[in-house]
């Protein structure tokens, strides 16, 4: 327990940072589940494509050393836009190719799940064959400046960027879903798809927008991940995807605020746990959380909210 106390602030800071990335990816799982009752297991590859899009943006801009000031902000924005475009387009194409044909035929959810896993392998292998199976490193873009200390924890600029960007994106998503006409269409479809049609909602369009928006959130996560860890790989999404799915379940799948809360909570739990049992136990701790939540409180911390609670 001594390590928990001495490592408390560093664990908290790292937990919130990685938790923000989990949360952003979890939003995609939760949105698609809310609207289609489908776990999009290829969402991890949607994220992976975003990291590659971010990396190629840095290559394209010829970045080789850390930037500062406006140049840094500009590059980060371009990187984020590229990540959002890469992930968003991947998600939309995925829906068109892997899910919509099954949905139109009224196939079972199991069929959609198998299709998701197939699409996931397909995307991984395409990227592995094209760009190799080794880790690809990002050029250092941002100085890891320590802004200030909390206890023994160093608050670094790149970590602050992750947390702030995640919160801003989640807030924007919340505004979109609860405040806009299309967002209301998304909620109506989640709550009662047949009645939504009777109100003039074009379900196909809503489903497409849901995948697009979820993909864009994963794209921002991908940019932040690339900037923070400075690494990617064809299978980078695998572990992160399962962690983010755990975060979505923990927060209450189908619940937008729950996804972010679940992400932050999971990040904190695995870092606190890691400080006690050793960092190599982080993944074990995270998946123990998943199993425990499914056993004890399958509706998660906040329950389904995009839809009606069905507990």
């Amino acid at each position: 327990m001594h390590a928990f106390v001495t490592q408390f602030w560093p664990s908290t800071i790292d937990g919130l940072t990685i938790g923000s990335i989990y949360g952003l990816i979890a939003l995609g799982y939760t949105l698609v589940y809310g609207v289609l009752r489908l776990i999009n297991f290829a969402h991890s590859e949607v994220f992976m494509v975003g990291t590659f899009a971010s990396l190629f943006t840095l290559h394209g801009l010829g970045i080789t050393h850390a930037e500062t000031g406006f140049a840094l902000v500009g590059v980060l924005i371009l990187m984020g836009l590229a990540g959002m475009a890469g992930s968003g387009i991947t998600a939309v194409v995925l829906e068109r190719v892997a899910y919509r044909p099954l949905r139109k035929r009224g196939s079972s959810r199991l069929a959609a799940l198998i299709s998701a896993i197939g699409a996931s392998f397909f995307l991984q292998e395409v990227f592995a064959l094209r760009y190799g199976r080794d880790l690809l490193s990002f050029p250092p873009l941002m100085n890891k400046t320590v802004l200030f200390h909390i206890g023994s924890g160093q608050v670094r600029a790149d970590k602050v960027l992750v947390v702030v960007a995640a919160l801003v994106m989640a807030l924007a998503l919340d505004r979109f879903v609860n405040g806009s006409r299309l967002g209301r269409g998304v909620r109506a479809t989640a709550q009662d798809p047949d009645t939504a049609v009777l109100m003039g909602v074009n379900i196909d369009r809503i489903v497409m927008i849901t995948f697009l928006v979820g993909g864009m959130m994963a794209g921002v996560a991908a940019m932040l991940y690339g900037n923070y860890f400075e690494l990617t790989q064809y299978n980078v999404g695998f572990l992160l995807g399962i962690k983010a799915f755990t975060a979505a379940v923990l927060g209450g799948i189908g619940n937008i605020r729950g996804a972010l809360l679940g992400g932050l909570t999971l990040g904190l739990i695995e870092n606190y746990g890691g400080s006690v049992f050793g960092a190599q136990w982080k993944d074990v701790i995270a998946f123990t959380v998943l199993v425990l939540v499914l056993m004890v409180r399958p509706t998660g911390l906040l329950g389904e909210k995009l839809t009606r609670a069905r507990a």
Partner: peptide
Amino acid sequence: LCQAPEGRGIFPGMTVLENLEMGAYI
């Protein structure tokens, strides 16, 4: 052509006002 469906089809997680606004979605 507009239908009030069997079982009423009220969106349970929306307020009365939001339900009415859904009626004017188009």
